[in-house]
Design a binder for these strands. Structure first.
Length: 490
DNA sequence: GCATGATCATGC
DNA sequence: GCATGATCATGC
């Protein structure tokens, strides 16, 4: 490959990058100006199961011809362009999503924070990126992944406003010596994600602001949900399907996005479900009713989704509190694949990624007579401390799966029915999470040849080959109730 | 009254 | 067809 581009010109860099479209990483290595032996070695190395985050390096080194640097400047300083090689995936239902969050730069605990976002090194790095998207298909070796899209991307002004607010929120924790309280779910589009293999190895003193307190190593990133939006809107150029909550960026001059959405809901405090239904012209008592009410209060007219919420991974969750102050439902997560779960690291698990980066907008209704009255709303995400508790529960459940779960038939007293009991920790064993079935029918293959249930799709294979009904992690209803602001519970 | 396994039912 | 919000049934 003849390396030929103008490193001062973003468009020239992009044009040169576009030569990659249609290639795989094997092709990139094949074109490199290195010995045959080294090429062989490189392919082998990249395809090893544990190989980390390096396919981007192949492109930097062999296609663009520069050595990687981890300095604070952009990769092409004269053009102000940062090169980002990042995966995307095609879901079961044909939707496109970002494969990962996009890491931008480390958060330093050793230097004073840069107070002005627009003058910060971070802004310099995220202002203009050359995104190179490859399709990740886990059934193929890594070097066979195809490079499909090359796109210059700058966050639009309305996003930059929110990114700035996110930045302020993150640096104010660092500045207060509270970096140990940072969490990716604290913010909207720009997150503070963990870095390093795990908490034991990657916790360091907050040298500049609180030497005595250690905090997890973290980096600024664009959240995965934000990158999914970028992929669909700017890379694939799909037509926008989500309504916005913000009318224009003016909305953010006076208050933060968080305050704005909570205020919009809270303006309706004290109204009954009946009254709200009438006000918004909703008449069906379907299971969508509660979230529909929330979106209408937010000013979203048609859908049960909003652009900002999709980008920020905010989920609207209606919470109904009974007259005895209990809450019926726990909050479910996508079902588990036991074979993956059994030997996964916590911070690489789907559950961790989901739980730590997700935010909920709780819209709380309290039962009064035969009606529900709106108490208000609260934007919530799990604290770092509680995430540790969840980790503890997760690991105990994982241990049961590794040991080989006990499954036992238990007949009811009259002998007419039976259930399959397991030895997962019970709900009360962990403050934050529990595990429970989530499928339309039960399905078990008990290993002795006995099959219970008809629909194999409702089951999930265990590492030892047996099958049990699909299970999900749930946030305990008692925990959620405990997290609500006092005035929402009264 | 709650825990736990099980299932319903809507909407994409 | 499937994910997921919602709810049920049994037993303590």
């Amino acid at each position: 490959m003849n390396i030929n581009y103008d490193e001062r010109d973003p468009v020239s860099i992009k044009k040169y990058g576009e030569k990659l479209i249609g290639s795989t990483f094997t092709d990139v290595i094949r074109e490199a100006e290195i010995s045959y032996e080294l090429k062989q070695e490189t392919v082998e190395k990249v395809n090893k199961p544990g190989y980390k985050g390096g396919v981007g390096h192949l492109i930097e080194k062999y296609h663009f011809g520069y050595e990687l640097n981890s300095n604070q400047e952009a990769d092409f300083p004269e053009a102000g362009v940062e090169l980002k090689v990042t995966p995307y995936e095609i879901g079961k239902r044909g939707g496109y999503s970002a494969g990962e969050r996009l890491v931008i730069s480390m958060i330093s605990y050793e230097k004073p924070v840069e107070k002005d976002f627009y003058l910060s090194h971070l802004h310099n790095k995220l202002n203009l990126s050359l995104l190179i998207h490859y399709l990740r298909n886990r059934s193929l070796p890594r070097t066979a992944y195809p490079i499909d899209y090359v796109t210059l991307f700058s966050p639009p002004e309305e996003d930059m406003k929110i990114i700035e607010q996110d930045y302020e929120k993150i640096i104010s924790k660092v500045k207060d010596g509270r970096a140990h309280e940072l969490s990716e779910g604290d913010t909207m589009y720009l997150g503070a994600c963990t870095k390093g293999s795990n908490a034991e190895k990657s916790t360091v003193p907050q040298k500049y602001y609180a030497q005595e307190l250690k905090a997890r190593k973290r980096a600024f990133c664009f959240k995965q949900s934000y990158m999914t939006h970028v992929l669909n809107k700017y890379v694939l150029k799909k037509i926008d399907t989500y309504e916005s909550i913000l009318n224009d960026t003016q909305d953010l001059e006076e208050q933060s996005f968080e305050d704005l959405i909570v205020d919009r809901i809270n303006a309706h405090r004290g109204k009954t479900d009946e009254k709200l239904m009438k006000e918004f012209g909703l008449n069906s008592r379907s299971k969508r009713l509660w979230s529909s009410l929330a979106y209408r209060m937010l000013g979203v007219k048609s859908n049960n989704s909003a652009e900002e919420f999709e980008k920020a991974n905010i989920e609207v969750k209606a919470i109904r509190i009974e007259e005895n102050k209990s809450m019926r439902e726990s909050i479910s997560f996508p079902s588990i694949s036991f074979k993956e779960f059994a030997y996964q690291e916590w911070e690489e698990s789907d559950f961790f990624n989901d739980l730590s980066s997700k935010r909920y907008l709780f819209v709380v209704f309290k039962k009064k007579g035969d009606k529900y009255v709106l108490k208000g709303s609260q934007l919530w995400n799990i604290s770092n401390e509680d995430l540790e508790s969840a980790r503890d529960g997760w690991m105990k459940i994982q241990e049961v799966v590794r040991q080989g779960i006990h499954l036992e038939k238990k007949h009811s007293k009259n002998g007419k029915t039976f259930s399959i009991e397991n030895n997962f920790p019970e709900k009360s064993a962990n403050r934050v999470i529990h595990i429970r079935p989530h499928a339309s029918k039960r399905y078990y293959e008990l290993g002795d040849g006995e099959i219970i249930g008809k629909d194999r799709k409702c089951g999930d294979e265990l590492p030892d080959g047996r099958v049990m009904t699909k299970q999900s992690f749930w946030l305990n209803n008692t925990y959620i109730l405990n997290q609500l602001d006092d005035d929402l519970k009264e």
